[in-house]
Design a protein around this nucleic acid. Structure first.
Length: 349
DNA sequence: AAGCGCACCAACCGCCGGTAC
DNA sequence: AGTACCGGCGGTTGGTGCGCT
């Protein structure tokens, strides 16, 4: 990790040893010192609050208007890779691992395209995971089983790493991929902002309130989620249960000590189906900031129409912009035929 | 306990394509 | 057509944490 830039905002112009970059801004002739290195919690909070209240726009404007001494690129990166509410943090599941391997075999090092098919995961995260773990594992696998595959998993070329990879079962794949099928419009984000604007007392981001509380865990996340949704009119106030059009979300019943449930895949589109499949609520304590309440759980929220938490915020997995997936030069019809390897996989195209 | 090496991963860098002027 | 700016992407760097000796 980069050297922490603990220079506070009141220290920006001192001769600190922390990294700054002097640039000429285009809007005026004055020079601005731009911070580099690790983001401080204060910077994160500024960016989050700005994004929530103002929404996404020109990143350089965001950097300027949010009061951040950062370049727009840096803000974009921070938001996409770390601050987006829909991020799923923590270890990759075996199913995710296998999906990454398979997608990499098809797409090569097109991390953004791979990430578009893994809800809550970023291209950077997948890239790091690949380079640090999967690449080695596959290499070892190939070394141990040279007859099964002559391929070299180091290659970035598509279709070169599938040797020895066991196909996952249909249910697992559907579980993994259903979230990515949700729409990515920003309308709900705008709606949320509009609702927020209706009250003077709203906390534009209640999730921030204990985002550094390492003990809060999943229960805290859900409490905050409920509070957030309540504020924006998506939840009933009576019982603390988030209902609305998004199914039921009961923070008090989803504490760390107990699993919470969601219906099996075949019934997730039908809220009336009460059969459940347990999901582990995991917490991941790591470095100073990894336990924001946005990202300390592997959280799935039952919905009535296959819309998951991301839609409550208006962020899909497409880089948080409601950006439609772009396949570029790929012939995706052909690609999907390749994906028939996974019989019921319903990728978002 | 100290030193070392490795793994992890946040963040930077440079390039590219799209767009506006 | 040329230029500048911006966003997006993939590759790379380097600090931190952890396990091993």
């Amino acid at each position: 990790m980069r050297k922490p830039d603990i220079m506070g905002k009141d220290k920006l112009n001192t001769s600190s040893s922390t990294t700054t970059t002097t640039i000429n801004t285009t809007n005026n002739s004055t020079k601005s010192k731009l911070r580099k290195g690790l983001w401080s919690p204060e910077e994160d909070e500024k960016l989050i609050r700005y994004m929530i209240t103002k929404g996404q726009g020109c990143w350089s404007d965001i950097a300027r208007n949010a009061g951040l001494q950062r370049c727009g690129k840096s803000c974009r990166l921070r938001w996409i890779n770390y601050l987006r509410p829909d991020l799923k943090r923590g270890a990759f599941s075996p199913q995710e691992e296998e999906l990454i391997i398979h997608l990499h075999s098809i797409l090569g090092n097109r991390w953004s395209q791979i990430a578009a098919r893994l809800p809550g995961r970023t291209d950077n995260e997948i890239k790091n995971f690949w380079n640090s773990t999967l690449k080695k594992r596959l290499k070892m696998s190939n070394n141990n089983n040279t007859t099964s595959s002559p391929n070299n998993s180091d290659s970035s070329d598509p279709r070169d790493v599938m040797g020895g990879i066991m196909p996952m079962n249909e249910h697992d794949l559907m579980t993994m991929c259903m979230d990515s099928s949700s729409s990515t419009s920003s309308s709900s984000m705008h709606s949320m902002q509009a609702n927020m604007a209706l009250t003077d007392q709203f906390d534009p981001f209640p999730l921030l309130s204990n985002r550094y509380d390492m003990t809060t865990g999943a229960a805290g996340f859900l409490d905050n989620m409920a509070a957030c949704l309540t504020q924006v009119g998506m939840a009933d106030h009576d019982d603390g249960v988030v209902h609305g059009d998004y199914g039921a979300l009961e923070p008090n019943k989803m504490g760390l000590e107990s699993d919470f449930s969601l219906p099996p895949l075949e019934s997730r589109s039908n809220i009336e189906d009460n059969s459940t499949t347990p999901i582990d609520v995991k917490t991941h304590n790591n470095n100073h900031f990894k336990n924001s309440c946005f990202n300390n759980t592997d959280l799935h929220i039952q919905t009535s129409n296959n819309v998951v938490a991301e839609d409550m915020f208006g962020f899909g997995n497409h880089h948080g912009q409601g950006e439609n997936f772009r396949m570029g030069e790929w012939d995706f019809e052909g690609l999907m035929q390749d994906m028939s390897y996974f019989p019921s996989l319903d990728f978002q195209v």
